[in-house]
Amino acid sequence: MEEFLNDLIPNVMARQDIFFKSIRETCLMVGWSGSISFLLGILFGVTITVTRPDGICSNKIVYHILDKLVNFFRSVPFIILLACLVPLTRLIMGTSIGVKGAIVPLVFGCTPFFTRQMESALAEVDPGLIEAAQSMGLGNLDIIWRVYLRESIAGIVRGTTITLISLIGLTAMAGAIGAGGLGNFAIMYGHQRNMLDVTYTTVLVLVVMVSLIQVTGNYIAKRNTH
């Protein structure tokens, strides 16, 4: 087996330690920035939903500020965002390279996208349910928790799946400018040293990762659809 692999992907086998470290780094970046973006995205998505003009606690100022902020960050290409955020990243994390340096820009790149995903998941909650809950005397926090979030679990899971997959794409880009991970691995060896087997192996690993996320997401979403 090992011989076979040595023949097939010699450059990867020769750099197994870097290869596995890259996979770990990618997982770390996705895990950390994904978790932070998930929480922030839910917070912002819910806030935008309830403060919109016909929402349960409409607030023009909060709604417009958040809405414009999300639009702003979504319109900046990620590669440029990476460069813009270097000073802020240094300030927060103490470094702008490596996995630690990648998390801040990844969160900035991912949260607005996930916020929109959350918004559309929450928008699918029938306004009639909100009205019914209000008629039962529920307060706004209860409505958010027991109706909005509870009723849109499937939608939130689908949005999370899409976001995680696009986040893997972002980590590869971050990798290209010094964050490490599979993106860095592929660019450094596969592209710059023209080791095609490295590129192909990276692609294969990414495809497997994306498929796993997709399958898991679909499964959870399905189990929560009644």
Partner: peptide, 21 residues
Amino acid sequence: LRQKRKKIGMIFQQFNLFASR
């Protein structure tokens, strides 16, 4: 008002049941 609302039940044309429960 919320206390009072608990004493006023309401039903709707579209039923408005919680689909996930």
